[in-house]
C-alpha cells in the first residue's frame, strides 16, 4: 500500500507542474486484458472483479455507468459478384463522452472522420452502406484522483466477443506526448496490483499511431474513436 501511495502522490505532483489545458480533452489510453485462454463469462467477471479491487486500493470512487458502441458498415452492393471500388468495411462509433457526434474509421486508408450524430439518418437516405454487427463497450466509471477510469466488458452476441478492458483518462493534460510518462507510471502501478491477484494474463495497450491518421498531439474524441477501433481489431 505504501508503494501505491507514493506513485499516486507522484502523479498528483505532475498535475501541478503541467496544469490543465482549457478547451481541450484529457488524454485517454485504452487497455484490454489479454488472457492466454479463451475468455468465458465467469472468467471475464473474475478479472473485472479483481480490477475493481485493484483500483479500490487506489481509493477510486464510483461515478456511474457509461457505454460506447462500435458498428460495422458494409457496402450495399447491387450485384455481390461484381467487383466494386469501395471500402469493404467502415467502422462507426458513438461515444458516451461526445453524444452530439459520430465517428467513422477506415483502415486502410487510415482515416478518422467526425460527423453529427444524425449522420446515420443520412447514411440511411444514401443507402450505399448498411449497418451490420456491433460491439458494445460498457461498464462503470470511477474517479481516482486526477484519473477517470472506465472499466467494462466489450461484448457482441453476434460476433461472440467477450473482453475486459479499461479506459484511463488523465484529466489535467490534453497533450498525448506530455501525458505519456504519467500514463505509463499509472499503468505500471495497475500491472503491479493485478500481478498480485494471480489472474492469468496481463494488460495490453495498443499504439494507434495517431500521426498516420493525421491526428494531432492534442487529444480529441477522434483519438478515442481510433483507439476503440484498434481494440476491436484485437478482439476479432
Amino acid at each position: 500500500m505504501a508503494t501505491v501511495k507514493i506513485v499516486i502522490n507522484k502523479i498528483r505532483q505532475s498535475k501541478n507542474r503541467e496544469g490543465a489545458e482549457s478547451g481541450a480533452m484529457p488524454v485517454k489510453w485504452l487497455l484490454h486484458w489479454k488472457n492466454i485462454s479463451n475468455l468465458d463469462k465467469k472468467m471475464a467477471e473474475d478479472i473485472l472483479s479483481e480490477m475493481l479491487k485493484s483500483i479500490e486500493r487506489m481509493y477510486a470512487v464510483k461515478e456511474g455507468p457509461w457505454k460506447n458502441t462500435l458498428s460495422f458498415f458494409h457496402p450495399n452492393l447491387k450485384d455481390l459478384k461484381k467487383p466494386t471500388v469501395c471500402a469493404s468495411e467502415c467502422l462507426g462509433l458513438s461515444l458516451y463522452e461526445d453524444p452530439e457526434k459520430f465517428f467513422f474509421v477506415l483502415f486502410p486508408p487510415k482515416l478518422v472522420v467526425e460527423v453529427d450524430s444524425n449522420y446515420s439518418l443520412l447514411m440511411n437516405h444514401l443507402g450505399s452502406y448498411k449497418k451490420g454487427n456491433f460491439i458494445h463497450f460498457e461498464g462503470t466509471r470511477y474517479r481516482c484522483g486526477d484519473f477517470r477510469l472506465r472499466l467494462g466488458f466489450a461484448s457482441s452476441v453476434s460476433l461472440r466477443i467477450k473482453a475486459v478492458f479499461m479506459e484511463i483518462e488523465y484529466l489535467p493534460i490534453s497533450s498525448i506526448k506530455t501525458a505519456e510518462p504519467i500514463m505509463e507510471g499509472f499503468i505500471s502501478l495497475l500491472k503491479l496490483l493485478m500481478s498480485q491477484t494471480g489472474i492469468p494474463g496481463n494488460f495490453v495497450c495498443h499504439d494507434p499511431k495517431y500521426a498516420e491518421f493525421e491526428l494531432p498531439d492534442q487529444y480529441s474524441s477522434m483519438h478515442t474513436a481510433l483507439q476503440y477501433s484498434y481494440l476491436m481489431t484485437q478482439l476479432i
Partner: peptide, 21 residues
C-alpha cells in the same frame, strides 16, 4: 423535399472517395 445534412470533418472528400463516390 427530403434533405438531410451533417457537419463533417475536413477530410470529408477523401472519406467519400474511399466509400466509392
Amino acid at each position: 423535399r427530403t434533405m438531410v445534412q451533417s457537419s463533417i470533418s475536413k477530410n470529408a472528400l477523401r472519406f467519400f472517395y474511399y466509400l466509392g463516390y
